[in-house]
Design a protein around this nucleic acid. Structure first.
Length: 470
RNA sequence: GCCCGGGUGACAGAGCGGCUAAUGUGACCGACUGCAGAUCGGUUUCAAGGGGGUUCGACUCCCUCCCCGGGCACCA
């Protein structure tokens, strides 16, 4: 099956063909560690974690590169506000971000590249742009990109320079020749961290680090660039302008992927609106797997509204999947040779294998892929009611395990609860069963109530008792 | 004003030029059950923003209007 991906550059779904054999170079805009990571970051990075995982599943050798903007205006603002050193600020919020990513099982990035580790590359790129006449040095020692020299400006976003002016909400910087020009190098102001350059002390502009880092690692052209849709203009236009002017190679990036925004209660999440959700706080409300499921239960290009009721609904849906998997695991452990439900379960497993991957091949449609998982779980529940053998149960579990290598939100078997715990619970459950047989419901209900209090739920089924974590 | 997205059941949210328009949640009824939960079966009446057009046939393609979200030369 051919993977098709929606390319912002062409506004179409296209067959995905890497530039070099089966190697895929993938770059995603990273964070500026100047404040707590939020749920919007989580949405973007979960989406691209799945993209990387799926490309690897398809057999591609993916190098996933993400930048870290560790020097930028807001970090300086934070310094001035708190009196802390910028490196302190960065290391605090970077650690917090890493914690959140680990909780969400976003572990597919090969290299996190920090802007300040690439000052020589950045300077070299600016020199190149100056030499080719695409940039100019302003009186204060800043360097600006000259957008009037670059004829393809606007090809990603469809913007026309002339039409942007009426809506501009910022007063253009007087150092610029044209309002559309953007800073490649910002001259140092008193008290600001700075690096040496041929134009005096200063620091990189926001857009240049991405192209310096990606060209350094990937060369003048690479396969995939991902980010949230808010960055299409001007950030990605600026990247294209810098890279294509600097290298002369077009297109800089073959496929541009953009994720939809995370909304809160129907509006943009913003500190000033009082609806800001830090990732660490969201993870207190929802389990990481539930949040990951919630974020993947919509197409990556669609916006998602983050609300309490939406999260509750996702939690209920997620538990249906999770419980289905646990039921299959129990059936596989029980070890019956075969059962009347086997044929139905095997058929459903094959269907799910087909549907899941067809959905993923269609522009990474995780929502549709998850629908395939639900279909399998529903069939598994029916089959389990009829009785299922170990082989058919394991067949289904292998499929679900493969799906989860990509989506990564199901509980992992074995290790998580541990064999000791499983044995202990099986033993307690047996004690309760003995009490129930004696019709000693006081004891059996007490066991169930007490287990429930520590987060273990017992369910009596036709084939015996099942326990699961709440 | 300009550039992108989008408008589908009670709610969330997919696909598709023709099939009963997925899937999940919620609600209700039933089965199972010592009780509870989970699960299964059923129900939730004509679910496509308005208007044109193309077509044998449009939710799907085109135009237009309305509404919502994002971006528009700092920054997320």
């Amino acid at each position: 099956m051919v993977l098709r991906i929606y390319n912002t550059l062409t506004r179409r779904k296209e067959d995905f063909v890497p530039l070099h054999g089966n190697r895929v170079s993938m770059f995603v805009c990273g964070i500026t560690p100047q404040d707590s990571a939020h749920v919007g970051h989580a949405k973007t990075y979960v989406a691209f974690d799945v993209v990387a995982r799926y490309l690897r599943h398809k057999g591609y050798a993916v190098f996933y590169l993400q930048n870290v903007t560790d020097m930028e205006d807001r970090i300086i603002e934070k310094m001035e506000k708190t009196g802390r050193d910028w490196k302190d600020i960065v290391s605090q919020y970077w650690a917090e971000f890493q914690e959140g990513m680990a909780a969400l099982r976003c572990d597919s990035v090969n290299l996190y590249a920090r802007a300040t580790d690439y000052i020589p590359e950045i300077v070299a790129q600016i020199r190149g742009l100056l030499a080719k006449g695409y940039a100019y040095v302003a009186p204060d020692g800043s360097v600006y990109y000259d957008t009037t020299k670059y004829t393809d400006w606007g090809k990603l976003s469809g913007q026309k320079i002339e039409k942007l002016l009426p809506g501009a909400r910022v007063t253009p910087d007087p150092n610029k020749r044209t309002p559309a020009d953007f800073a490649l190098w910002k001259a140092q102001k008193p008290g600001e961290p700075a690096w040496d350059s041929p134009w005096g002390k200063g620091r990189p502009g926001w857009h240049i680090e991405d192209t310096a880092i990606s060209i350094h690692h990937f060369g003048p052209q690479y396969d995939l660039h991902g980010s949230a849709v808010e960055h299409v203009f001007p950030h990605h236009e600026a990247e294209i302008a810098q890279a294509e002017a600097f290298t002369g190679v077009t297109p800089f990036v073959k496929v541009w992927m953009h994720t939809g925004m995370l909304m809160v209660g129907g509006e943009e999440m913003h500190k000033s609106l009082g609806n800001f959700w830090a990732l660490k706080d969201a993870l207190k409300v929802a389990a990481p797997e539930e949040l990951r499921f919630f974020l993947l239960n919509a197409h990556y290009r669609s916006p998602i509204d983050y609300t309490a009721s939406g999260l509750d609904e996702a939690r209920a849906a997620y538990r249906r999947l999770r419980d289905g998997v646990e039921s299959l695991r129990a059936a596989a452990r029980a070890g019956k040779e075969s059962g009347p439900g086997d044929a139905g379960l095997r058929k459903a497993t094959d269907d799910a294998n087909r549907d899941f991957f067809a959905a993923m091949d269609d522009d990474m449609n995780t929502r549709e892929a998850i629908a395939g998982m639900f279909a399998l779980v529903a069939a598994a529940n029916r089959a389990l009611d009829a009785g299922v053998g170990r082989g058919a149960a394991e067949h289904a579990l292998v499929a679900l395990g493969t799906f989860d290598e990509i989506l990564a939100f199901l509980p992992r078997g074995g290790g998580e609860t541990g064999r000791l715990l499983t044995g202990l619970l099986d033993f307690i459950v047996q004690l309760r069963e003995d009490a129930r047989k004696r019709k000693d419901f006081a004891v059996s209900d007490a066991i169930r109530t007490n287990l429930s209090a520590i987060g273990v739920v017992l369910e009596d089924t036709k084939d015996g008792v099942r326990w699961k974590r709440r």
